[in-house]
Every structure is written in C-alpha cells, then in structure tokens.
Design a binder for these strands. Structure first.
Lengths: 138, 138
DNA sequence: TCCCTACGTTTACATTTGTAATCTTAATTA
DNA sequence: TAATTAAGATTACAAATGTAAACGTAGGGA
C-alpha cells in the first residue's frame, strides 16, 4: 500500500524478470539478465539483496535455492513510477508529453481503442487550457 | 543534441524556473523555489552549479548578478526524460501506462484532440498485440 | 576610499546507486 | 564422510544526489 521506497533503474530490470516469471531463483535472474546486460553474477545478487531490503522482493526461505516473489505488482509499480515522473513535469506540458509517448511507443489496437474511449470521455469535462505551475503558488 | 548527462530530480525543479522565465538570476530561482520547497538558499546555489557543470544552464557572466539561461529546451528535456523512463518499461505494458497517465493528468481539449488524431492515424498500422520483452532476446 | 553584502565558488557529509569481489554456508557428489 | 560447488550474505568503493555551511570577491553605499 504505502511503498515510499523508490526502485532504482538497475533494480527495476531485476524486478521485470520476477514480474514476468511470477517468481524465480537468483540464477533465473542472472540467466535472463545476461541476455540484456553485461552484469556480473555478483551484481545481480546485490540488486536482489537491495530489493529485499526495500521490500520489493520476498524470498521463500523454506528451501534452497530461495524462490523470490515480487511483493509489489508490476502494474502498481508502473503506476507509481510513471506518475511520480509526471508529477515533476509542468502541468501545461503533460498533454504534449503523452502525445510524445504515444508517438514513440508500440501500442496494440486494443490499447489504442481503450485510450480513445478514455479520451472521448475525458474530453467532456476537459479544460480549455491547463495553466503552468512551475513558479509555484500565486 | 547529444546530452547524455542526466538531470537530477532536484535539478529538474530548478530548470523549470528558468524554462518558465526564459532566463533569470539565482535569486529568482531561490525566490520561486521557496514557494514550493523548503530548500535553503545554499541548496539552490549548489543545484545551479551542478546544472552548469552538466551544461544544462549557461550564465551570462558579462555582468553581475549572472543571468542564467537554459541550454536545453524544456520540450527536449521532457522528451528525453519521459522516453528514457518508458524505455525501462515492459513493451507490453506501455499502452496501459499511457492510459494511466491520461487518467491522472489534466489535459486540455486541444491536446486531447491532437491525441485522438494521433491515435486514429496510429491505429492504421498498430499491431494486434505487443510482445513482452522482459526476459530478453529469444 | 572602505566596508558591507549579495552572489558566485568551494567544501562537506550522509545516502543511494552502479558495479563487483569476497566470505560463508548449505547442498551435492565422489 | 570429505570435498566441491552453488548461492546467500557481507564488504568495497567510486560516482551521483540531497542538502547545506563556509569562503571569497566585486560592486554599491557610507
């Protein structure tokens, strides 16, 4: 619920493995990460350790090798992550930033349809203009 | 063009002042930031300094107090920032992440319209499904 | 002209992160 | 059972970051 802890970039890549597998051992992570990074085994182990300390990963210690499971759902983590980043953007620029993301991302037809419905609804109550808030309260 | 340097969160908030003002002195930044943070003056000065070192801010030193100007455009910085973050997301989840952003952001009617047009065009060539790439190359 | 002060520069220091080596211990095999 | 190995834990260390104090100096006012 209240995960104030923030996930590092490197840690994020480790979590993606466990999110996708559902669960796994450290050697699973090491194996898959070898495909996309040139991290040494020790590096992955460190990352797994830090992820545990931050309570993003929980090991089942009843047997060895431990089987690690994500404590936080991927969708929840993504939600927190992208919104935290957007919080730091100028309000006025968020629309264009989203357009930029749409342009640069592969999106399935289904997701596009969902998005268009969402936008259609949102348009009803959308403001004419969103004001910049970069200079703080008036 | 090739700004490999990354902007810290705190630095980002300083840049927003100069982006919005176009240019300004350190006391401008200190003044406006006092409205949204409880940073000491010294903190803002440090941040300005680091931003210079990273070549995000350039001072006009022909007179005192220096007048600082952004070296990188806000739109460009936002572009780099949001796309870098999206690069770290699972391909398959990007669509939903954008929907999440749309839901949680104030967006003007104009931007919504632009977005819908963009989506309409994008839909023509959109894939049925986007595959997860979290486990690396096949 | 001299001092004060605002503002730029340097130094400080704890924490987080990237990246890894090493140590320890449980488990497997000879 | 002894030796080897795999994997978890501890230690390492530089760079970046958040946060700020202290220092030095040019320019304005007494």
């Amino acid at each position: 619920m209240n995960n104030i802890e923030t996930m590092s970039d490197a840690g994020w890549n480790v979590m993606r493995i466990f999110w996708t597998l559902g669960q796994g051992t450290s050697s699973d992570a090491i194996m898959y990460l070898k495909r996309k990074t040139d991290w040494k085994e020790a590096t992955v182990k460190t990352l797994i350790n830090r992820l545990q300390k931050k309570n993003f990963l929980k090991p089942d210690q009843s047997a060895r090798p431990y089987v690690y499971q994500p404590v936080i759902a991927e969708s929840e983590a993504i939600h927190q992550n992208v919104n935290r980043m957007f919080d730091s953007l100028c309000c006025m620029k968020k629309g264009k930033a989203i357009e930029d993301l749409i342009s640069n991302s592969d999106i399935s037809k289904g997701d596009i349809d969902d998005m268009m419905n969402l936008l259609k609804a949102k348009r009803e109550t959308a403001p004419e203009k969103v004001e910049c808030d970069c200079l703080g309260e008036v």
